[in-house]
């Protein structure tokens, strides 16, 4: 059952979409920055919001769906509060990033197909190169960069974030 706070949050978010659309003058040509802003607000692109954006801009929902699925930056699935990006570029790979990925998957019960924990706390993503090869293997959690991470440190980091939410 929905709590009043959730309702308030959803309402707040909805007014945000309208703000975003207005910020870009409701121009169809600005669809990508609009979707970026929507994703920043919601952490993903909810279906009903995409439909609303499409209708407001006079683009077909099918085309907006096409744009949203073309770019890997966009997600149609809800993402976790903490997005763990593990660099799997050449340097990080050589330095053991696959071990980190396995560690995270084990700790958070994620898999190749499941990237987000059911409690919507964590999402695991791999990225091709963060441009921080000197710190290999590198991990970024939201905006915070962690360098030369060992498997043990990775487990500890996850525990820390979990503790913060407990």
């Amino acid at each position: 059952m929905a709590t009043p706070t959730m309702t308030a949050e959803k309402l707040h978010n909805f007014s945000k979409v309208c703000e975003i659309l207005d910020r870009f003058d409701r121009l169809p040509s600005k669809i990508i920055p609009i979707l970026q802003a929507v994703q920043e607000e919601y952490r993903y692109l909810p279906e009903e919001i995409l439909t609303f954006v499409a209708t407001s801009l006079g683009i077909s929902p099918a085309r907006v769906f096409g744009i949203a699925t073309f770019y890997s930056h966009f997600s149609l699935e809800p993402k976790g509060k903490y997005i763990i990006k593990v660099c799997d570029g050449t340097a990080c790979h050589v330095k053991g990033s696959s071990g980190l990925i396995e560690t995270i998957q084990r700790e958070l019960k994620l898999s190749e197909k499941e990237h987000t924990t059911p409690d919507l706390l964590f999402t695991l993503e791999t990225v091709s190169c963060l441009g921080a090869c000197g710190l290999a293997p590198a991990v970024v959690i939201n905006d915070k960069v962690y360098g030369q991470v060992s498997n043990k440190q990775m487990s500890e980091l996850i525990a820390e974030y979990k503790a913060m939410e407990a």
Binding site: I59, S60, P61, A62, R63, F65, G66, T69, F70
Partner: peptide
């Protein structure tokens, strides 16, 4: 525009 390309 009922159908369009999606994914890549």
């Amino acid at each position: 525009g009922a159908i369009d390309f999606a994914y890549r």
